[in-house]
């Protein structure tokens, strides 16, 4: 199940983020609930839209220390992770996300193409809690993970 409902589709092959788009103005938002930072959208309808699945890597970093709650440490011990900020191709919107396991900062460079995937954020006895993550497109295509 989704770790938080309403932010992304659970399509296992081609998942997408669920954002907002101002009907007349054309600006995009993620999450949709945060629409409003564009003053020209006052009175405009905000439609729910599915956002591009790919984009260019804007920047990236690592989390070497365990974040505080509400981050849930998956597994028994904290493992460092990689975070990416990706500029969505069509929407010109930069979106954060963790990078899939097995990708290190050495594998990344600003500008490379990234693709949205669904992955496990953490699990308990009953469920896997899912979230979007970023994966280098070339890696997904090669399937050599």
């Amino acid at each position: 199940m989704a770790a938080v409902e309403g932010l992304f589709t659970l399509d296992s092959d081609e998942p997408q983020l669920i954002g907002g788009r101002a009907r007349r103005r054309g600006s995009y938002f993620f999450p949709k609930a945060l629409a409003g930072s564009d003053p020209a959208c006052l009175g405009d309808e905000i439609d729910e839209v599915l956002l591009s699945r790919t984009g260019q890597l804007w920047s990236y970093t690592t989390g070497e220390y365990a974040p505080p709650a509400p981050y849930v440490i998956p597994g028994d011990e904290f493992e460092p992770y990689v975070v990416a900020a990706v500029r969505l191709a069509e929407e010109n919107l930069v979106v954060l996300g963790q990078v899939v396991e097995g990708v290190s900062v050495e594998d990344l460079s600003v500008g490379m193409e990234m693709e949205l995937v669904i992955d496990v954020l953490y699990s308990d006895d009953e469920h896997d809690y899912l979230v979007w993550k970023w994966s280098p497109t070339a890696m997904s295509e090669n399937g050599d993970e």
Binding site: A3, Y81, Q98
Partner: peptide, 14 residues
């Protein structure tokens, strides 16, 4: 924090 584990230094580092 919950979905990305993005701390303040995450943003500084980006």
């Amino acid at each position: 924090f919950h979905l990305v584990g993005a701390t303040n230094p995450t943003y500084f580092a980006l």
